[in-house]
Simulated scan of single mutants.
Amino acid sequence: MTTTTDWTEIGCHPVAERIHRIPLPMPGDGLRAINVYVVEGPDGVSLVDAGWNVPGNLEILRAGLRSIDVGLSEITDVHVTHIHRDHYTMGPELRRVVGARIHLGVGESPGLAALRDLANTVPADSLLQLRRAGAPGIASAAREQALTETWLERDWELPDEWTDEGPVVIGGRPMTATVTAGHTKGHLVFDDPGSGVTFTGDHVLPRISPSIGFELGGWDNPLGAYLSSLEAMLDRPDSLMLPAHGAVGGSVHARVRELLAHHDARLDATRRAVASSPGATGLQVAQALPWTRRERAFTSLDDFNQMIAVCETMAHLDVLLERGEVIADSSEPVGGGVADEGIERYVVA
């Protein structure tokens, strides 16, 4: 088990029997790095998550593998937890370079299809939620920022195989793939009972709660799905957590309980914000809440994180709506303006 104080330290770190972790940098991203896991077994070498295809990462991966006497060409398969760029886009590159096969959860198919159809990184479904929340300015800023980002069709080629929930073989080792919807619809975690570990992707992270619903393919109560997926993990045997971001280790069950408690507290804070300002829009509720572990003011967040914050708020409001704890009204435009049509305003039930 690796004991480095900085989990992003470049290298190839052992985490379990014949399982190593190679952090690959995420330039300009607050998460800093993604853990790519190298799984050696009787059928060769597989990766869990591929990393972000940015300059230098392929060489970092190659050097990490070399340190354990594994060649890049020995990678036969890449099992991706979900369809975000830091997890997926190195997969097609590895297929081009060494012929590795890409495996992706079947529930990610609509999101990948929508992404390929758009041919850009504009978060179209998130923009719809921003407009529903009464935040067209944030939506416009997010769209303009996304349009400045480089789009490479080759980064989003289709996988070789769509993975269903159930038994899966990774590196020749029998594991179980479980759909854990919420962060994305088709997010998968992989249980390796032989090693007593679970590759938790972004579903269970050690220090933060993952963003909810930041994907294409439609919006369907993503936080409700996330909470249900967390609760279902408590019905399975506990294991050691191998997350996509952050240090490895710790009980999956213990962290799941912390995440459930966090969202209970967040739902309560959201309901109280509505109660204190009847008729508030989603944006106004988000502005009333603290953000990040440092409890920062909404106005201190950059455009991207304001978008994430408003979408998170809408996800929490949708759970409260489903539970009957708040009521939404979008029948009358605020101030009678056409631009306000479809904006929801909330009151406590």
Results as ranks from 00 to 15, higher is better:
Met307Arg: 04
Met307Ala: 12
Ile308Arg: 03
Ile308Lys: 01
Ile308Tyr: 06
Ile308Cys: 01
Ile308His: 04
Ile308Trp: 05
Ile308Phe: 13
Ala309Ser: 05
Val310Thr: 10
Val310Tyr: 04
Val310Met: 03
Val310Gly: 12
Val310Cys: 10
Cys311Thr: 14
Cys311Leu: 12
Cys311Lys: 13
Cys311Gly: 07
Thr313Tyr: 09
Thr313Met: 11
Thr313Asn: 06
Met314Ser: 10
Met314Cys: 14
Met314Pro: 07
Met314Tyr: 09
Ala315Glu: 04
Ala315Thr: 04
Ala315Asn: 07
His316Met: 15
His316Pro: 04
His316Val: 10
His316Arg: 15
His316Ala: 14
Leu317His: 09
Leu317Ile: 11
Asp318Met: 01
Asp318Leu: 03
Leu320Met: 07
Leu321Ala: 10
Leu321Asn: 02
Leu321Arg: 14
Glu322Trp: 15
Glu322Lys: 14
Glu322Tyr: 14
Glu322Ile: 12
Glu322Ser: 15
Arg323Ser: 08
Arg323Ile: 00
Arg323Glu: 13
Arg323Thr: 06
Gly324Leu: 04
Gly324Glu: 06
Glu325Ala: 13
Glu325Arg: 08
Val326Ser: 02
Val326Cys: 03
Val326Phe: 00
Val326His: 03
Val326Arg: 01
Ile327Gly: 11
Ala328Val: 12
Ala328Ser: 11
Ala328Leu: 04
Asp329Phe: 02
Asp329Leu: 02
Asp329Glu: 08
Asp329Asn: 12
Ser330Met: 07
Glu332Phe: 09
Glu332Cys: 08
Glu332Met: 12
Glu332Leu: 13
Glu332Ile: 15
Pro333Trp: 04
Pro333Leu: 01
Pro333Gln: 00
Pro333Ser: 11
Pro333Asn: 08
Val334Leu: 07
Val334Met: 10
Val334Asn: 03
Gly335Ser: 09
Gly335Leu: 01
Gly335Tyr: 02
Gly335Cys: 01
Gly336Val: 04
Gly337Arg: 13
Gly337Gln: 14
Gly337Thr: 13
Gly337Cys: 10
Gly337Glu: 12
Val338Thr: 03
Ala339Asp: 11
Ala339Val: 06
Asp340Thr: 15
Asp340Met: 13
Asp340Ala: 15
Glu341Lys: 01
Glu341Leu: 11
Gly342Cys: 12
Ile343Arg: 12
Ile343Thr: 07
Ile343Gly: 09
Glu344His: 02
Glu344Gln: 00
